[in-house]
Design a protein around this nucleic acid. Structure first.
Lengths: 224, 224, 224, 224
DNA sequence: CATGAATGAGGCTTCATTCAT
DNA sequence: GATGAATGAAGCCTCATTCAT
């Protein structure tokens, strides 16, 4: 992985690279905040333009529609998470400790000032939790996938999968366990906040509930 | 559970009970098919009315908006699944076999002619896989939840949770494991069809892949 | 004037006499309250039916549309005001005192328990102030007028006009002064409450401001 | 008063200044004609768009709804009338003659070619007569007034009020007399055309009836 | 390249009304 | 006579997008 390139997302997603101009960066930054604020369904380029004091037409120069913009944001996130996985696991030598760190990366608050960007990482995490499934749970999933736009997510899964295989070579489902790990971190974080009866969260352990649930699950599934 | 009542959904979801009239039943039946066909984002009351040879106004007499209609369909599904869980587990006495049956219910094709309704169960299952998370992954989740409209899902989770506790009383996360089981059945079924690289599916075992992955996971997590 | 008939309004306004049935009376009573609450623009038969626990179809048995219902209410009011003018002026012999009484009738709170009806008189007065002009300030005024449905208002004006002529036979505009008196009582009462800068109201004399303004105006115009 | 600014209306009324573009000017011009033709109740943006060969969406870029558009038209009218009052009274020195001129401005036909605009002034006058009260006789009057959108009407009243005070300093109700003058000019012009029995109009003096009635009234009320 | 203006299409919702019982 | 059900038509509004400068 070329770290400086890891944040570059697939060209098929944008018309013009938002990282290349100040306006482009502002679009992404404000989009993250606005999607967090109103939810993806109520998010429109009109509102985004208003919020940024620019025009819809200007945003269209960068992204053809709001789905692509969300996809861009998510891919940025997946790339960033892969970067974190690589960087933060590198100094750890124990495989179990590496896996524990992975779970922590997906369930704890993110460090705000790692990486050069000024996106609000924890707001970003919240919209990943609530909105990420909406980019693939659509009729058009095949066409979207054909543009290779899910590559960052797949790369991240592959990397975690490698770790799982290293830890427990006999396990038959390393990719599925990776995606289950990630998707479940989202659903359990969402449920523990908004629909707690669907979980076993209690008030004392709220902050670390999902982390503990997933660590317990992963290491039982991969028991040696 | 009163079986004959189990398919009645919360009054807050509809304006007029769709089970009460022929038109109401047709709305639900056609909605399931149309959501399957075009996806929930592209689904509108106008298209549904056109499909059914009725009018938008008539549909509005039953449901205030398309979200409520989806919620109705999902609640019908959750109630139906709880009914199946109860009925199909009753003759089984071995607790492990019961749990296996639960996983099968969520991962195999559904029996078409159980229950009195004529909804297409496997189409229904497909839209549950693709669309169910969209009813709660919204900004309005709190208000929606306050209307007690997620009760059928919670009831189903509670029932599976009881089974988990019976099988392995020492396990600390029975509710979270239940929802993980259900949500993961959805995501892995979706991924194995549309984004197979996110799973470990292979062409031979396609039909039973998710079933095997989840059985393996559940019984390792609950190992006695 | 036949007093017992004075509250009967022109047959062209209704399909079925609302005074003839309990439901009819309830329609009128609830309509007054609901128009006061939401304003005539937002008032619909659907809302009225909901409020009364009846159906739109039932209301349509009495009135063809909401304009006719408003017209009915207003005509009831004009007839009632004529009745009050007759009854309350009868014991007064001084012509000036009679005219003062007329101004008071249009500017002070109405007695709640005069007449046999249980309509809320002061709510009724409020909707007359805000809504009465809407029955004639419409494109269809000619057709409506042809049905003689403004007769109660004309009768009331004629009666006040007679009084004006008796007090000051030389005055050339008794009818216009009558309608000006009534219409101005409405606009000044409305303005003094909602747009006080359009009047000379001050906080001390609020309750009697319009009465004083109109008495001053009338007696200066009709100075002998 | 800055004459060139006098026709600018409050920014809260429009989204985009209709004076700033050709389309904007056409919207206002055609709206005046269409409201005159069909009445405000039957006036919709759809009909207006059709009439102008444009789209509803284009009109919505200028005004959020038809009430705001009416308000814009009325405010333009009030500003225009204030302009006329200032300009046409300036050369007159006699206070009584000034007041007479004011009454004439509100009751006679308007000069078509004063000012730079090409709105049809007498059509405009007709819709002011029939529709102006509908902008404030609504439940939302408080919220509307809070946006200071009635300022042009208040300014006009204040100006006439000043004239009244100059003519007769002892008179206690100059603002109320101003609004009564304006509102009565509307109601009497309307009644004399559509419901003549509510006035004292006769066929010979039709054109000047309201003028004479109001001049008689004003100078009796303000007798020195 | 960025922006201001314009618009075709369609979504969402309610109204006013009729029909059948 | 009263009501429950159904609906045609239209209103109101926003979205996603394009064009011209």
């Amino acid at each position: 992985m070329d770290y400086s390139l890891s944040f570059k997302v697939n060209q098929n997603i944008y018309l013009r690279d938002p990282e290349g101009t100040e306006l482009g960066k502002q679009i992404v930054k404000h989009a993250i905040d606005l999607i967090y604020e109103v939810g993806f369904e109520h998010f429109t380029f009109k509102k985004l333009a208003l919020e940024m004091n620019t025009t819809e037409a200007s945003i269209y120069r960068y992204f053809t529609n709001k789905h692509r913009l969300l996809l861009y944001i998510l891919n940025w996130y997946w790339s960033y998470m892969e970067y974190l996985v690589v960087v933060q696991l590198e100094p750890i030598h124990d495989l179990r400790a590496k896996l524990e760190k992975v779970v922590e990366l997906f369930t704890r608050e993110l460090p705000e000032h790692l990486g050069q960007s000024d996106y609000n990482k924890n707001v970003l995490h919240q919209i990943v939790i609530s909105e990420s499934s909406k980019v693939y749970l659509v009729k058009e999933v095949k066409e979207i996938n054909d543009h290779e736009v899910f590559k960052p997510y797949k790369d991240l899964c592959a990397r975690i999968s490698d770790l799982i295989k290293a830890y427990q070579p006999a396990y038959a489902y390393p990719h599925s366990l990776s995606t289950t790990l990630i998707e479940t971190s989202h659903s359990q974080l969402f449920f523990s906040t908004h629909l707690p009866k669907l979980t076993d969260v209690n008030n004392e352990a709220k902050a670390t509930f999902v982390e503990q649930f997933l660590k317990d699950l992963v290491f039982k599934v991969l028991a040696r």
